[in-house]
Every structure is written in C-alpha cells, then in structure tokens.
C-alpha cells in the first residue's frame, strides 16, 4: 500500500525537491502551499504523515501543527517539521504544538526518507 505525505511549503522549488524525493521513495504526495491551504485539505482529506515548513505566509507551520492536532483524524498522525529554523525556542514551540519530529534544512534526501520510514514504522 502506498503511503501518502501531506507536504506543506511555500517555496515551489523546495516543494519540487521534496516531492521528487518522496515519490522516488514510493510515497504519494499531497502538496500545499501554506498552513491555510494545508488545513483546508486536512479537514476533508487524509494523509499518513505530515511534513511541514515553519516560515510560511498566511499560517505558519507551528500554528498548522496545532490546528491539525485539533482535528480528530490528525490526532495520531506523525507530523514532521522540515525547516531552516534550528533554534531551541522554535523547536520547543513546535513540540508544544504537537509536532512529532524536527528536521533541519538543508536536508539529505536519504536521511529524510529514513526518518519518515522510522516514524511510520
């Protein structure tokens, strides 16, 4: 069974890169451009894992994580944050909002896939 990843990033090039990485590893990818966009999808659509950026217009990744966690169907879905932010404060905010893990950009594609597989195990 193919697993689906809800991927949220405001940068088209980043989305293209992550999509290729994920698809190469056999995932289905749902692409959204910011928190509002992703939340709109999540209210009706499912995903096996969420991978979100932090700094985005309209709704940032941290807020998105919090909002997703309040949706019953996303309560237990692993949410990974993929971001350039590596500050401890920011990580703590992400964790408090309900993020499962934190991956710092720039990332190694192989590592990203390994991490996702680990969380999905």
């Amino acid at each position: 069974m193919r697993r689906s990843v809800l991927m949220v990033d405001d940068s088209p090039s980043m989305r293209a890169l992550v999509r290729s990485t994920l698809e190469l590893a056999g995932f289905d990818v749902i692409e959204k451009i910011d928190g509002v966009d992703a939340l709109g999808y999540a209210k009706g659509g499912s995903a096996d894992l969420v991978l979100t950026d932090v700094n985005m217009p309209n709704m940032d990744g941290i807020q998105l994580v919090g909002e997703l966690r309040s949706l019953p169907q996303y309560k237990f879905v692993p949410i990974l944050v993929l971001t350039t932010e590596s500050g401890g404060d920011m990580k703590m905010r992400g964790r408090q909002a309900g993020a499962t893990g934190w991956i710092v950009k720039p990332f190694d594609p192989a590592q990203l896939i390994a991490t996702i597989n680990r969380v999905l195990q």
Partner: peptide
C-alpha cells in the same frame, strides 16, 4: 516579518541547493 520570512526562505533554498 515579511522581510524576515523572505530572507529566511532564500537562505533555506540556497543552502538546500
């Protein structure tokens, strides 16, 4: 905030690529 976010995203992208 906008300025920061934009700089941040350029940084992320250029590091990644």
């Amino acid at each position: 905030n906008t300025i920061f976010r934009v700089a941040h995203s350029i940084k992320g992208g250029s590091a990644t690529f």
